[in-house]
């Protein structure tokens, strides 16, 4: 994996001539870039060091700039129930909801994206347009009836219900991305498969899917991040503390108990929420950025 975050064909062509030298002389460019990097990374440094300090050092006033102690006690304490709330089970809930949401979104949007790209029928353009309209309506605005609808079908305060809702919010984007991926594949490939006697679904499975993998990875990544970090929908649709996901559980820690917040514990909780995202991003950056750009720019 390269560290390239943007690699588009015309960018490579334009790049050589235009951007060896930028807006600043090289020395100044380095100074500015490094200073900005320090600013951007500083909160993450604080997060990690605060989390690995001993609870006593993490509570010290004024705070130590460099950790004097190293301890995993904060992480151990996350497993200990805090007034009926275990961050460890929140971690499990987060993982469950994110994975379930991702699987549902990927499967459903792959099927629909394929249909829109490859099996045009009367009215499919209109339907695709309708799908895109859903981008325009913020889900925050329809959260009350969502709550009532989930209640009607017995999925309110239920992690599966939450996953279905989150998957639905991510569907328009996923369908859009998958339709673009399938549209980019030459029709001759699929026709060859059809001639060999494959059905539409068979052609999708054996010929199209392997080629569409980058699109699928992009869709999966964007959905996973969105679900993992979702706050508002979880706050409203889940009413039982034991079913909270990490971002919502952390709110209980940050509200503190007996008027005191355990900052080491809270930052350890934030760390286990943040670190997986950063690691996945650094490894799969290419797909993440490609998905984001093709979804946003087109």
């Amino acid at each position: 994996m390269t560290s390239t975050s943007i690699s588009r064909p015309h960018a490579a062509r334009a790049g050589k001539a235009a951007s060896r030298r930028g807006i600043l002389p090289t020395g100044a460019w380095w100074v500015v870039s490094v200073c900005l990097a320090v600013i951007f990374l500083y909160p993450l440094y604080i997060l990690v060091t605060q989390a690995i300090k001993s609870p006593a050092e993490a509570a010290a006033t004024p705070p130590t700039a460099f950790p004097q102690t190293f301890s995993l006690q904060n992480f151990v304490d996350l497993g200990v129930s805090q007034g009926g709330l275990s961050l460890l089970s929140s971690l499990g809930n987060s993982a469950l909801v994110s994975i379930l949401t991702t699987v549902i979104t990927v499967v459903v949007s792959t099927l629909a994206g394929y249909a829109f790209a490859r099996l045009p029928f009367k009215g499919s353009r209109v339907l695709f347009f309708v799908t895109l309209i859903t981008f325009m309506v913020p889900f925050q605005a329809i959260i009350t009836p969502l709550y009532l609808t989930l209640k009607d079908i017995g999925l309110q305060n239920n992690l599966v219900g939450l996953s279905l809702v989150l998957a639905t919010f991510n569907l328009p984007f996923g369908i859009f991305l998958m339709r673009n991926s399938f549209s980019a594949i030459p029709a001759s490939l699929e026709e060859a498969a059809m001639i060999d006697g494959a059905t539409a679904l068979g052609a999708l499975r054996r010929v199209m899917l392997p080629i569409a993998v980058p699109g699928i990875v992009s869709t999966a990544l964007l959905t996973f991040f969105a679900a993992w970090n979702e706050f508002f929908a979880t706050l409203i649709l889940i009413t039982d503390q034991s079913k909270y996901t990490l971002p919502v559980s952390l709110g209980i820690l940050s509200a503190g108990q007996n008027n005191s917040v355990d900052w080491g514990l809270l930052e350890a909780g934030v760390a286990i929420t943040v670190v997986p995202c950063v690691v996945i991003y650094l490894i799969l950056q290419r797909y993440y950025v490609a998905g984001l750009l093709s979804g946003a720019v087109k």
């Binding site: 975050s5 900005l36 990097a37 951007f40 990374l41 909160p43 993450l44 604080i46 997060l47 991040f225 993992w228 970090n229 979702e230 706050f231 971002p247 919502v248 952390l250 709110g251 940050s254 809270l266 930052e267 909780g269 934030v270 929420t273 943040v274 995202c277 950063v278 996945i280 991003y281 993440y288 950025v289």
Partner: peptide
């Protein structure tokens, strides 16, 4: 510079 984008807004707020 892009790293904070992948961190949830909630996490960033707690931090």
């Amino acid at each position: 510079y892009f790293i904070p984008v992948v961190i949830g807004l909630a996490s960033a707020s707690y931090l």
